[in-house]
């Protein structure tokens, strides 16, 4: 603070006393209304303190005459939104997934609801957009369906899950042909060659010929004579380009030797009826629905 008030010689106004490179700043007074605006904000804050929750205490806070809580407002808003949706949700609950897909409004609603439910519940394993993940989490966007890709099949898979404790769960159990010594390692190698031949990748035609017999005896019942698979038993196609656990020779041998078999929870107990139906419709549109 300058002790002596200095006056500018030209304007006669006081200066602030500070000097920068020979330039001094005039100490012009602020307009009064500026001060009044400050007073107005103080008056506003007092009124606010009285009307609304404001001063925090140790165990609580002052509630104010009007009160109000952002948390409660959110709950109210959510309740209102649910109420607005309730008519549509009832309609969806009453229909089969195939019926939902027929009405454009219900379909749109279900796709939106299904997308959010999918992101919450399914995406951790199956990936956003049903992209799938390496290590046994199948893509839901392609045209290969281990347990079937119709609306009904998808709904059953979601509702009861796969290889879990649910009584209605989808169950299938491929024997561990190598680990349980049902087949010799040489036979398994021949079998792998035989499977590679389905997609024209076999290198040893003799091995392919040797593999035919064990295939027809042990595998064809579930996977089909041409490797066409059987969705009812969850036996995947072997004559296409999609391999859940890898399509190289080692991968195939490992899978015959001691198969990995994925598990999916049943969502019947965790999600409500309408959510399951919306999810079904959503998954069906990801790109592979049959």
């Amino acid at each position: 603070m300058p002790t002596k008030v200095e006056k500018d010689s030209i304007t006669g106004q006081e200066t602030t006393g500070h000097e920068w490179d020979g330039i001094k700043e005039l100490n012009s007074p602020l307009p009064k209304w500026w001060l009044y605006v400050l007073y107005a904000t103080i008056v506003f804050s007092v009124i606010y303190y009285v009307l609304y929750p404001s001063i925090p205490g140790i165990t609580g806070y002052t509630k104010g005459l009007i009160g109000g809580s952002a948390r409660e407002a959110l709950v109210e808003k959510l309740a209102k939104a649910k109420e607005r949706q309730s008519a549509t949700l009832t309609q969806i609950a009453a229909l089969e997934p195939a019926g939902i897909a027929e009405s454009p409004e219900l379909l749109n609603f279900s796709l939106a609801g299904g997308r959010s439910a999918f992101a919450d519940n399914c995406a951790p394993c199956h990936g956003l957009g049903g992209a799938g993940r390496p290590g046994g989490f199948p893509s839901l966007a392609d045209d290969a369906w281990i347990w079937g890709g119709t609306l009904e099949d998808i709904e059953t898979s979601i509702r009861y899950g796969i290889r879990n404790d649910n009584d209605d769960s989808r169950i299938s159990d491929m024997p561990a042909f190598g680990a349980d010594e049902l087949l010799e390692p040489a036979q398994i190698a021949d079998l792998a060659e035989y499977l590679l031949a389905f997609t024209d990748r076999a290198e040893d035609q003799d091995a392919v010929a040797r593999g035919e017999e064990p295939y027809l005896e042990n595998c064809a019942a579930c996977h089909g004579e041409q490797g066409e698979g059987l969705p009812e038993l969850g036996a995947p196609r072997l004559n296409d380009q999609i391999w859940l656990y890898g399509g190289e020779r080692e991968d195939i041998i490992a899978q015959i030797d001691k198969p990995k078999q994925g598990v999916m929870p049943g969502w019947e107990a965790r999600l409500d009826e309408t959510t399951i139906k919306m999810l079904t419709v959503y998954v069906h549109t990801l790109g592979g629905g049959q």
């Binding site: 957009g129 992209a131 045209d143 380009q241 999609i242």
Partner: peptide, 15 residues
């Protein structure tokens, strides 16, 4: 699409 970036179909074609 960001997820999935591409999809391999059973006949090996890319979508």
């Amino acid at each position: 699409d960001r997820n999935p970036l591409f999809v391999t179909l059973s006949d090996g074609s890319i979508r």
